[in-house]
Simulated assay, not measured.
Amino acid sequence: MFKDFWGNPIVAGALWKMIETDRIPQTILLAGPEGVGKATLVRRFAAQLLGDAEKIEHDDLSREENRAIIADREKWPSEKRSEDPLLFASHPDFLTFPPDGPLRQISIQQMRQAKERAQMRPLKGKWRVFLIDQMDRANIQAADSLLKTLEEPPSHMILFVTAENPYDLPSTIRSRSVIFYLTPVAEEEMKAFAKAKQLKDAERRVSLAGGCPGLACSLDLAAYEKRRGVMLALIEAASGHTNFAAWAQKSESFLASKSEKLDYHFKPLYSLLEDLAILHGGGSHIRNRDLRETLQKIAGRITFDWLRQAVEQADLLVSLQRRNVQKGPSVDNYVVSLRGI
């Protein structure tokens, strides 16, 4: 079916069938973990429908030049970003709207731009394809603006929306979408993917990626392991495995650094909590295999209620970070509140 797409054959087959039969819903929501291939599948779909795959691939957000554009815009004042909403459109009939700014959000200005651009007729053929990537990072105003486009979409527009958790989107958007769930890719297929891409440190990447090919490719292992070390210290202190002083010492440089955003630490944190849940339940197949001994000790001293609250508090950290709350008090409160259980 779609060339160079790995995993989720049922979802890929359903989208392929839509093209074959020319029965394409106007709004499609792809849900699943970051890096599992949601945006990649949209680009493959658009390339099959519109042609000129090479141009469409230029909008891959993991490309170095696109990452540089996004990183540079984080330094812009908000007024400048509002005047020039972020979108990628290497192909005239395929547009990508990614999260923008230091808080990595979908803005209302981007959704207004999408609404205006949606009215333009296709340059070639009969379709225009829009991708709003990580729509779960949109604020209420941006979501409401998108809803106006969904209520009366032009007949030539196909809108793809991606989200890690579709229930972070308003029900009004979900109800107007055909939803597909992409699941992590099996380990054997991940190994085949890593071999085909000739990834360095393939075994390590496959283990840490948790079934997400995009994450396996994009991981900066040195930076990831440094951030994971900070989150491990957080969990050790929060579980009572070490004292608060050990956490304060470990977190000092992290909290002092303006470039080390809390957002970068959520993936390591959730992967550690996932491994703790597996070990606490008697399982053995974990992602952070080099930390097995330490995680096993922590799993032996915590309860299921502690795990549940640790995940809930992590979710709260995510929401606070998107509101630009200071990371120091947030993470310290995480430790203190969980130590009290």
Rank of each mutant, 00 (worst) to 15 (best):
Lys197Arg: 13
Ala245Thr: 14
Val206Gln: 00
Gly214Trp: 00
Arg227Lys: 14
Cys212Lys: 10
Arg289Thr: 13
Ser257Cys: 10
Ala237Ile: 11
Asp290Gln: 08
Ser257Met: 08
Leu291His: 04
Ala245Lys: 05
Gly240Arg: 04
Ser259Tyr: 03
Phe254Tyr: 10
Asp263Ile: 10
Gly229Asp: 07
Cys217Arg: 06
Ala245Phe: 06
Lys258Thr: 12
Lys267Asn: 04
Arg287Pro: 02
Gly240Glu: 06
Gly283Met: 14
Ile235Leu: 15
Glu203Met: 11
Leu276Val: 11
Ser284Thr: 15
Glu260Gly: 00
Gly282Pro: 15
Leu276Pro: 06
Ala233Cys: 09
Glu236Gln: 13
Tyr264Pro: 02
Leu272Cys: 06
Ile286His: 05
Ser284Val: 15
Leu199Cys: 04
Phe193Met: 03
Glu260Ser: 07
Ser284Cys: 12
Val230Ser: 01
Ser259Arg: 14
Ser207Lys: 09
Lys197Asp: 04
Ala192Thr: 13
Phe244Arg: 05
Pro213Thr: 06
Ser251Lys: 07
Gly283Leu: 09
Asp263Arg: 14
Thr242Cys: 03
Arg227Cys: 01
Glu252Tyr: 12
Ala248Ile: 14
Gly240Lys: 05
Leu255Glu: 01
Lys226Gly: 02
Lys258Tyr: 07
Asp290Met: 12
Leu199Met: 10
Asp275Thr: 13
Lys258Ser: 13
His280Tyr: 12
Phe254Val: 11
Trp247Thr: 10
Ala245Val: 14
Leu262Cys: 07
Lys195Met: 11
Ser257Ala: 03
Arg228Gln: 05
Arg292Lys: 11
Glu274Arg: 07
Phe244Tyr: 15
Ala248Gly: 09
Val206Trp: 00
Glu203Trp: 07
Arg205Gly: 00
Gly210Gln: 01
Ala256Asp: 04
Gly211Arg: 01
Asn243Lys: 09
Ala277Gln: 08
Gly281Ala: 04
Phe266Thr: 07
Ser253Tyr: 12
Asp275Ala: 07
His241Phe: 12
Leu272Trp: 05
Arg289Gln: 01
His265Trp: 02
Leu199Val: 11
Lys226Ala: 11
Ala246Met: 06
Arg287Gly: 01
Ala277Val: 09
Asp220Ala: 03
Thr242Ile: 13
Asp220Thr: 11
Ser259Ala: 14
Gly229Asn: 09
Ser259Asp: 10
Thr294Met: 07
Glu225Tyr: 10
His285Pro: 07
Thr242Lys: 05
Arg292His: 08
Gly214Asn: 05
Ser271Arg: 15
Pro213Met: 04
Leu273Val: 05
Ile278Trp: 10
Asn243Gly: 14
Ala245Ser: 06
Ala209Phe: 10
Lys258Pro: 11
Glu252Phe: 05
His285Phe: 15
Glu274Pro: 01
Lys195Pro: 09
Ser253Gln: 06
Ala238Glu: 06
Arg228Trp: 04
Ala223Gly: 02
Gly229Ile: 08
His280Leu: 02
Leu199Asn: 06
Glu293Tyr: 15
Asn288Val: 12
Ser257Lys: 04
